[in-house]
Design a protein around this nucleic acid. Structure first.
Lengths: 143, 143
DNA sequence: ATTTTAATGCAATTAGATTGCATCTTATCT
DNA sequence: AGATAAGATGCAATCTAATTGCATTAAAAT
């Protein structure tokens, strides 16, 4: 279930398998880093309408197929969820890294630690984003 | 230096003290929670031009006077920095709580723990946002 | 008081995201 | 397979956040 095919994922979630939905899943899973909405639109904009893309992404987030990481600029980035995610709950418990140079969002292996939340507040999800310079950019910038 | 007046803050940062800048600081510090850009604009829109507001907020973030918390929707929220912040570095090391019901952003007392970042990535700032239902909304929602 | 320096306001523009509605496609049911 | 129901797509329009250029105005320095 770790690397299910796009069609399997759609079946598991009772979603009609349209070519647009398959393209989006293929494209996002082909990428090592999370993909931003603008990048997706740029790449798929000729095959898929802007609005459809937004709707597909929202459905995927709701179903727990993708997780959405909003970066410092307020831009939405998308990455495939681990199999532990569902429509009921996201278990996107790893740290993200947002490069302030290239703007890419990376999923790090580091897990989000337990956080002690103030009495009275009911936390349902935690987002931990580190900002700085990514591996590739630090090479380029020091040259 | 903990609760410096708007004018003091401007002096300390070599910023001209205009009535617009003072209003923004007054308004944000009057609030217990972080204030969103839309809320600020709604409140100050008749005294301060939209564009000026954006520019003031950006200068304040650059100078380390305010910190910006981007919530799940990509909306910018602003809160007064602790005195430890400067133009060189933000020490906004506490956890934020973003209510998914009323959208307010709270600064919690909880500190952000040490995070082990993957080799090669250079983290400069950490943002830890918990999403869920805030104190007030949990009261209202259970009624 | 004059000059310098920088902030403000206005108009226009860019970009991300959303809504309503007609059309088309997928899946279902004979 | 063919008809039908359910739902997804595309298009036009709209909304909101944010940014840029430029003329005007206000604050600080001399």
């Amino acid at each position: 279930m770790a690397n299910a095919s796009p069609i399997d994922i759609l079946k598991q979630n009772n979603l009609k398998h349209t070519k647009q939905r398959i393209r989006v899943l293929e494209d996002i899973s082909a990428n090592a880093t999370a993909v931003s909405q603008p990048a997706l639109e740029k790449k798929l904009g000729k095959e898929i309408d802007r609005v459809t893309l937004y709707r597909i992404l929202n459905t995927y987030v709701e179903k727990g197929i993708l997780h959405r990481i909003v970066d410092q600029n307020g831009t939405a980035n998308y990455a495939i969820c681990s199999s532990a995610c569902s429509a009921e709950q996201h278990h996107d418990e790893h740290v993200h890294f947002n490069c302030t140079n290239c703007n890419k969002v990376f999923c790090l292996a580091t897990k989000v630690p337990e956080i002690n939340i103030t009495e009275g507040f009911k936390a349902e999800a935690i987002s931990l984003i580190a900002y700085g310079i990514c591996k590739e950019c630090s090479k380029t910038l020091t040259l």
